[in-house]
């Protein structure tokens, strides 16, 4: 077993080696360009900033590895955090609010999953539609206003730390357990099998519909968790929250090795590196005082470069 573990770890490391190099390279550049970058407080900041995206991206990676896409995650984040905030505000109970939030996220994921897995609607179109649908519902639900006045302790959670900020702990725990889930469990291997070849998986007796369904519910679940983190940081429920988060989540998965055109590939640790990569880039550009327009341009170029370099490395070996 230890021998085997070593091989597995090696595999994951070598698979992500390229992305890690690119990430280190990016961090070196930032460090050279500004002394404000490589400080403990800024690095912690980056981790906190990456958390919302990173958590959504976990669900997204499962979806992409299963051969699907989910672009409604940002809208699910908004809707579920608004529901959570409202419940929290009117009941005064934090656990109840968190529960409502997670329930809402899972319910929306379940809606996507039902249409895609059981009615066999194409995933892209379904989640494109529900992206508008859920976002619209979030606006209707809040009448377009932020829900403020949440209990104190939400704020305390966002700012609290035990060695690392609580938010970072949440992120790390999710990553470690989901890496394990995808790599080591029967469920995870079935997700990979469905992503590689739906037909082969079906003929091997894997319940493809069930797996597809679960993966979308998971995506809703993680969007809700991310919504909770978001809500705690802003201490409010925002209907505009999570705008274009789907794109960041997809980018994180793809930088981490997943493929939008071919299921069955991708891994959770890679996604974490992808999410941190994006956060480093955003953070660095802001510290460097780059204008928002140029930030977008730089974002596009660097993500292309990251993926290109990784492709090149794979071809060379």
């Amino acid at each position: 077993m230890p021998h085997n573990n070593k091989i597995a770890i090696k595999k994951v490391l070598s698979g992500n080696f390229g992305t890690v190099l690119v990430l280190i390279f990016l961090m070196c550049i930032m460090t050279i360009l500004t002394p404000k970058f490589f400080t403990v407080s800024n690095l912690t900041n980056i981790l906190i900033q990456s958390a919302t995206n990173a958590i959504i991206a976990v669900g997204m990676t499962f979806v992409i590895v299963s051969g699907n896409t989910d672009i409604s995650v940002g809208a699910i984040l908004a809707m579920s955090s608004c529901v959570g905030a409202q419940v929290m505000k009117s009941s005064g109970s934090i656990p109840l609010g968190l529960f409502a939030s997670i329930l809402a996220g899972c319910a929306l994921g379940l809606f996507n999953g039902t249409l895609i897995a059981f009615l066999e609607f194409p995933p892209f179109i379904v989640t494109l539609s529900t992206m508008w649908l859920f976002r619209g519902l979030a606006y209707l639900f809040t009448e377009g206003r932020a829900i403020v006045g949440l209990p104190e302790s939400m704020m305390n959670f966002a700012n609290g730390k035990f060695v690392l900020p609580y938010i970072v702990w949440v992120m790390l725990i999710i990553y470690i357990s989901c890496h394990f889930l995808l790599q080591k469990t029967v469920f995870g291997r079935k997700v990979v099998a469905v992503g590689d070849s739906k037909e082969s998986a079906r003929l091997s007796g894997i319940n493809v519909k069930k797996i597809t369904f679960i993966v979308f519910v998971m995506s809703g679940f993680f969007s809700a968790i991310s919504g909770i983190v978001y809500m705690s940081r802003l201490n409010s429920g925002q209907p505009i929250a999570g705008q274009s988060y789907e794109m960041y989540a997809i980018a994180a998965s793809v930088i981490g090795g997943a493929s939008l055109t071919k299921g069955g590939i991708g891994n959770i640790l890679g996604t974490l590196i992808g999410a941190i990569f994006i956060a480093v880039l955003q953070n660095g550009l802001i510290i460097l005082n780059v204008s928002t327009y140029w930030q977008q341009v730089a974002m596009g170029i660097v993500v292309l470069l990251a993926i290109g370099l990784d492709k090149l490395r794979k071809r060379m070996s």
Binding site: R189, S197, S200, R202
Partner: peptide, 18 residues
């Protein structure tokens, strides 16, 4: 539909029975 071509030999073999 007989094999998951992108996966390893071992993953294909256990696919029918975990």
């Amino acid at each position: 539909d007989g094999l998951s071509l992108g996966l390893s030999v071992e993953e294909n073999i256990v696919q029918s029975n975990y």
